[in-house]
Amino acid sequence: MQAEEIVGSRLTNQSLSRWLHSLPGVDKVGLEARAASLATRSIKTTSKVWGLDMAIKMMDLTTLEGMDTPQRVRSLCQKAMTPDMDDPECPTPAAICVYGDMVPHAKAALGKSKIYVAAVATAFPSGRASMKVKLQDTKDAVAFGADEIDMVIDRGAFLSGNYLEVFKQIQAIKQACQRPKGKPAHLKVILETGELQTYDNIRRASYLAMLAGADFIKTSTGKVTVNATLPITLLMLEAVRDWFDQTGELIGVKPAGGIRTAKDALKYLVVVKETAGERWLTPELFRFGASSLLNDVLMQRKKLLTKTYLGPDYVSVD
């Protein structure tokens, strides 16, 4: 569907504003209570094994540090290809998520494996750079062969009500994800929910990103105090569910930052199932952005298979 068709008029800042502000307000208390009640659900035995395997398959194994080196990226790729040395049946993460300049190293290390390479772009994490720089940042990563681009929105423009500007930027980056030959890079749009102040704003930003052509909406960069939370993810899952009902487009959701334990990951899976439905329980439509989650999931997985508790000495040091 065309954006104009959905908004119902020609795209101007006023019409976008009117459309976004006509979305129903978020019931904060209800949302948080719903997330808290879903988080109490107990997942055991075979369901737990399934859930842990799915959590690994949905993982974007991430390293986004100023001190990243090609060696570190290579070792992360090795870990992604063989998460558990003792168990060749162990599933692999969906993607490796790195800064744009590390894409060639990740690509080379991953070789023919099916693991994607995601690159953060557009002056990640702040997004404070000229459009020219953001576009070049994206094009570089795409040219290096990134399969997925994680862009950040301009929170300053969004919070000052300049929705059209945000919309145009996302569209332009989406354009930059195209390749002359071959598949375009998937576009994940980071809303940085920790800086959006209110649940209402998060709902609006989700719709704005989907309207502009995001393939995924992602909660956070992992670089601010408040990162992914269960209520925020629930809210974004509601948005993609309603968007699908309205337009027939399937959009993914990626919570990122602060998800460190297998227990947390299982809570998210429950929320996915109960909010968007089983259709979203696939790496194509739901991802975890995480760096330390994998080790904990591996320890839990092994505990279920061997009936022995593991220690941190038996998984890799990141």
Binding site: K307, T308, Y309, L310, G311, P312, D313, Y314
Partner: peptide
């Protein structure tokens, strides 16, 4: 069995 098998002990 759990305490003795625990790999972090």
């Amino acid at each position: 069995s759990w305490l003795v098998g625990h790999m972090d002990v």
